[in-house]
Amino acid sequence: MDDAAGAILEVRDLHVRFRTRRGPVQAVDGVNFSLAAGEILGVVGESGCGKSTLCTSLVRLLPENAEVTGSIRYRGEELLTKSGAEMRELRGREITMVLQNPMTAMDPLFTVGNQLDEVLRHNSSMRGEERRSRALEMLRLVHIPSPVERLRSYPHQMSGGMKQRVLTAMATSLSPGLLLADEPTTALDVTIQEQILRLLADIRGSLGTAIVLVTHDLGVVRRITDRVMIMYAGRAVETGDTEAIFTDPKHPYTRALLASIPRIGHTGRRLTAIDGQIPDLADLPPGCAFAPRCPSAMSGCTTAFPPAFNTGPERTARCWLHEGSPA
């Protein structure tokens, strides 16, 4: 796969299992990927496929009933063995995150300036004046009009799009190496979504931050990601270059996802939906979890889950259809 030396993030055989009253839930099941500095990876899948869990596991902020195994290497350092204090050092400085709902992601009782300042104060050695000018610089970078006044605003005095931009400013104010964006546009209006996406692309351009963009919106993925990882039931079923995957999907699930995108010009036709439902992560069927919904399922699909077969340069798909390609 990727050249490990150039990778900023290297995830190998990551498993996340939640202990619940209903028994263990395998939310992430053997995921592998790597991310080069400044690269944008899209993580795509339906709700409940483990993409948010994957993101949260990278910063080690999963609830206590989660068991994480495998390896997460950030700039060559293993994160899963780091202490709480070491992880806190990393969070906010090296690895940051933007959440889905900007309306609730800021403390309503403190001003924007106060909260921006706090992030800088606890993650850097900057002095008061320095922090203030850095905060202003960040607000300008995310295109907030009249930033000096904005520092004195409370979150409720701003629109959702503006809040998401301020949160992005907070998350990137110390030029992190990696930004995890968990559905950052889902809660916003379509026009605002576009602004936020452009902002993320800008940030990658100006700060060289690598971005993991979690989303279920394929349009978003195609617009700004370099590579995509398609997830289904906690497993990465297909990974590869964004353009290649969109033009020639190899996994039946990817094909089905792409076929379900509504297209302009194709009016009057029913939207294509994927038959069946996503499986219960606490009770996965044996073999490939997509097999019960898969139009190309073969008899062997329900007995064993396939390894990742190479389906092209830097491309893999976990589907028996591609058996014979080198694994």
Binding site: R91, M97, L99, N101, T104, E118, H122, N123
Partner: peptide
Amino acid sequence: SDFVRFERLSGLPERIVVLKH
């Protein structure tokens, strides 16, 4: 709350997250 999660993600010390926010 989401903001508590975001503050932890932003590397704020637990003491600040709990006692201030």
